[in-house]
Structures are given as structure tokens and as C-alpha cells.
Design a protein around this nucleic acid. Structure first.
Length: 190
DNA sequence: CAGTGGATGCTCT
DNA sequence: GAGCATCCACTGT
């Protein structure tokens, strides 16, 4: 097994970190797998929660890099971001999907679904499968329950427009593992 | 398959 | 009071 990702990994622009996260294995209490889909949200981005300044909800986004930012979506789901850049700068990468490889049985129980394809394909599903909740907001990513393992090989990555937003729609800041069966949605046709 | 609408809670205007 | 970085069930082809 390799060493965990260094803190310096996250102290960079989201536009560098986001594609670098594709293929990185995320585990929460031993449950998870390789990340196959993410979205970048930078400080100048009107679609970002941090765009209008710091609030109680988005405080973790402005905190030190290498920490989690977890928020509630549509009153029902949790969504997990990995904070980048530096203190006082709102920058984070939203995790949208991963390939279930570790603790698959646990994911099935939490999701009440059998098909591997539907276990962690989508930001809300990913959090439910891994047991991520608001309790994880602001927690360091290099300490339990989180584990992040570097990828072995450089994967083929495709950029596309982001999903579910109304502003900043033209930015191709969604990154996916090419050919993955575990995406939240298929890539738009070229 | 595509499209629609409801659930549900919190933040910010 | 509006608007969500969503998911699921249900409708109609």
C-alpha cells in the first residue's frame, strides 16, 4: 500500500488538483474506492458557495487546504468537497462519483441498492454510501476516518461542463475518468 | 428512454 | 420567500 496524499497536494489551484484527484482512492472508515468524477469550484466562480463571501455554512471552504467541506443539498443529501488553495481562499473540489471497491457490502446496506453502478454515482449517493455527514465538515483529510491513496498510473481524463448549476455553466470544470461505468451521468456527446 | 415533480432543510435576500 | 453543486418515482412514448 502507498503513503497517503501529502498536505501540499491540496495547497494548489483547484484547476490542478481536480484532475489530479481522478484515480485517487478515497476511503472513509475503510469504505470507498477510486474517484472517477469531480468538479472544481474556484474563488471567482459565481456557481461556487464561496463566491459571495464567508458564511457559517461555507466556512470550511475558506479554511486550510486538505480538509473536508460537507454541506446539505436540497435538504436531503450530503455533498463532500476537498478544500484546496490556502486559508482565506474559497476553493474546493466536489466529489461526484467513485468506483466501489472497498467495503461494497457496507455501501449496499447504507444505500439499499445492489447494483455497484448505483452505489456511489452522484455526490449525494457517494456520501450516503461512505457514511459522510455534516459531522465530517472541516475535518482533516489525512486523519481518520479519511484515507486518500495516490493513484498508481496516470489515468485518461476528460473535461466537460458541470452538472446541476445555473451560473458558470460554460466552464468545463467537470473531470471524469474516461470510459468509467460509475459516473453520475454520461458525458455529453461531442 | 425522456420528461416532470415531490421530498425536505437550510441559507441568504 | 426563493433558491438550491440531488435523488427517486412516476408518467408517457
Amino acid at each position: 500500500m502507498s503513503d497517503a496524499l501529502s498536505r501540499a497536494f491540496f495547497a494548489r489551484s483547484v484547476h490542478e488538483v481536480a484532475p489530479d484527484l481522478i484515480g485517487v482512492t478515497l476511503l472513509v472508515d475503510g469504505v470507498g474506492g477510486p474517484i472517477v468524477e469531480v468538479e472544481a469550484y474556484d474563488p471567482t466562480d459565481p456557481a461556487s458557495h464561496g463566491y459571495r463571501g464567508r458564511t457559517p455554512r461555507n466556512a470550511a471552504m475558506f479554511g486550510p487546504p486538505g480538509h473536508a467541506y460537507v454541506y446539505r443539498s436540497y435538504g436531503i443529501h450530503w455533498c463532500l468537497n476537498l478544500v484546496c488553495e490556502g486559508v482565506g481562499i474559497a476553493a474546493a473540489v466536489l466529489l461526484r462519483a467513485l468506483e466501489p471497491t472497498h467495503g461494497v457490502e457496507r455501501m449496499r446496506e447504507r444505500r439499499h441498492v445492489d447494483e455497484p453502478r448505483l452505489l456511489a454515482a452522484g455526490p449525494g449517493r457517494l456520501c450516503e454510501a461512505l457514511g459522510v455527514t455534516g459531522e465530517h465538515d472541516g475535518r482533516a483529510l489525512d486523519r481518520p476516518p479519511f484515507v486518500l491513496l495516490p493513484r498508481a498510473d496516470h489515468p485518461e481524463i476528460v473535461a466537460a461542463p458541470r452538472i446541476g448549476i445555473t451560473r458558470g455553466v460554460e466552464q468545463p470544470w467537470r473531470y471524469v475518468l474516461k470510459g468509467s461505468r460509475y459516473l453520475s451521468r454520461a458525458l455529453p456527446r461531442a
